[in-house]
Computed example of a mutant assay.
Amino acid sequence: MSTPQTSSHAPLAPHQTTLVPLTSRTPFGFLRWLLLNILAALQRLDLSLNPSHTFVKLRRHRWSFKNDYPYLIMAFFASISLFVMDASPLFKLLIPLGYLIITTVPFLGQFFFPGTPVLAWVITFFCARYVPTEWRPDVHVALLPTLESVLYGANISDILTRFTHPVLDVIAWLPYGIIHFVIPFVVAAVAFVFGPRGSINYWGKVFGYMNLTGVVVQIVFPCSAPWYELIHGLSPANYSMAGSAGGLSRIDAIFHSHGYTETFSTAPLVFGAFPSLHSGCATLEALFLSHFFPRFRIAYWMYCCVLYWATMYLTHHYLIDVVGGGCLATFFFYYLMPAELREWETGGVGRFEEYDLLDRESTSFCFHLHPPSLVARGSFLHVRLASDP
């Protein structure tokens, strides 16, 4: 194979010379490239349904408190959640039994075991409504607006809510009420198909731990949101009060529905303003994608900025909540990142960037004559064409 033509790029690394380029291709070629990457990712899946394979791995695992203490923490919060849950003992028993099944069957376990922190966060969040009132601390009503005025010189979140418009409502609603719930799955899918080995497990761990920590902070340090100040002023709050959709009630009015109003009125955590997990998730997603796929980092952070603004515009968070969520995400992102993922094969270039590097010799597409063969080298997919030796 001749040396690739790279007049505008640095010399190619050996593993890059047979990559199908992303640019200079027809839409059909791009879809073919995408399909091949997805198929290669699916080929890495463990299709076994035999739980004994998992038990063998457990016996071989070298247990240590330093490496395994997070599972004790998650088990603690899950146990507390089950204890306070207002449900029948049989239903409570089915939850750990179901977890045991989905984590010991290899085919299911490869998805759900790395997502254990996410499952711990979900059950802790939804069971927060059952925590007895006598266990709960007093709700902080004046603390956040006071801190915001002291630290930033003004109540920034209040300023952002003084002018509202249906167009702004929709712009704020899209990232806050819809995209926020979709992006984590998109990031996981991208990491699974294009990311280096271990990136999908790292994503599940950091996303789950950050959200679990945020929910625990919201339970032990309850704070009211800006919507409470607009409705009740700074009068003391109690746990019998219903939640409010804040600015999202205007979305209900636009679509003639009551979805957000009913959802937030019965929210598990009515006084969970600090930290903002909306901003924490957005920050974490931007950090993760910027690290592994930096080509589109401007778009990632633009989304973050819009979501930061939306949390305050919709009266769900103060600026200090947004800052707290961003700091929480940044801490977990760097604290939990494995050493092998800090510097990976592309040297920080990112998979999407690689496909701009064009190997002239390997670009004679002969799919109709000779199907390509997939060769896995490390975590990268190589498509060897008919012209390759």
Rank of each mutant, 00 (worst) to 15 (best):
Thr26Ser: 08
Ile231Asn: 13
Ser2Ala: 13
Ala267Thr: 12
Met74Arg: 00
Tyr69Glu: 04
Tyr313Ser: 00
Phe107Val: 15
Asn67Met: 05
Leu369Ser: 15
His140Phe: 09
Leu147Cys: 02
Phe207Tyr: 11
Tyr228Val: 01
Val206Ala: 05
Val167Asn: 11
Val84Ser: 03
Pro184Cys: 07
Ile156Ser: 04
His316Val: 01
Asp169Asn: 11
Ile171Tyr: 02
Thr18Asp: 14
Thr133Phe: 06
Arg342Cys: 12
Asp46Ala: 09
Phe255Leu: 09
Leu277Asp: 01
Phe271Ile: 10
Thr6Met: 12
Ser240Val: 15
Ser249Phe: 03
Ala40Glu: 13
Val56Asn: 12
Asn50Gln: 11
Val139Gly: 01
Ser362Met: 07
Thr263Phe: 15
Tyr176Pro: 02
Val323Cys: 07
Gly347Pro: 00
Phe271Met: 13
Phe91Asn: 00
Val349Leu: 13
Pro275Leu: 08
Phe365Leu: 13
Phe185Met: 11
Ser362Leu: 06
Gly109Met: 02
Pro226Val: 00
Leu45Phe: 09
Thr104Gly: 11
Pro268His: 02
Ala253Leu: 09
Val349Glu: 14
Met241Tyr: 03
Ser149Arg: 14
Leu287Glu: 13
Ala267Glu: 11
Gly325Val: 02
His382Gly: 08
Val186Ala: 15
Ala245Pro: 02
Ser7Tyr: 15
Ala188Phe: 03
Ser2Val: 12
His61Trp: 10
Trp173His: 11
Ala78Val: 04
Ala310Met: 07
Arg360Met: 07
Thr266Gly: 03
Gln16Val: 02
Tyr202Ile: 13
Pro51Lys: 03
Leu287Arg: 14
Pro175Thr: 07
Leu143Asp: 05
Gly247Asn: 04
Ser8His: 09
Gly233Val: 14
Ala386Gln: 09
Thr116Asp: 15
Leu168Asp: 06
Pro236Met: 07
Ile219Val: 13
Asp388Ala: 09
Ile156Lys: 05
Arg136Thr: 06
Phe112Gln: 03
Lys205Cys: 09
Glu345His: 09
Ile80Tyr: 10
Leu328Tyr: 06
Glu134Ile: 10
Leu45Glu: 09
Tyr335His: 10
Leu151Thr: 10
Pro236Trp: 10
Tyr308His: 07
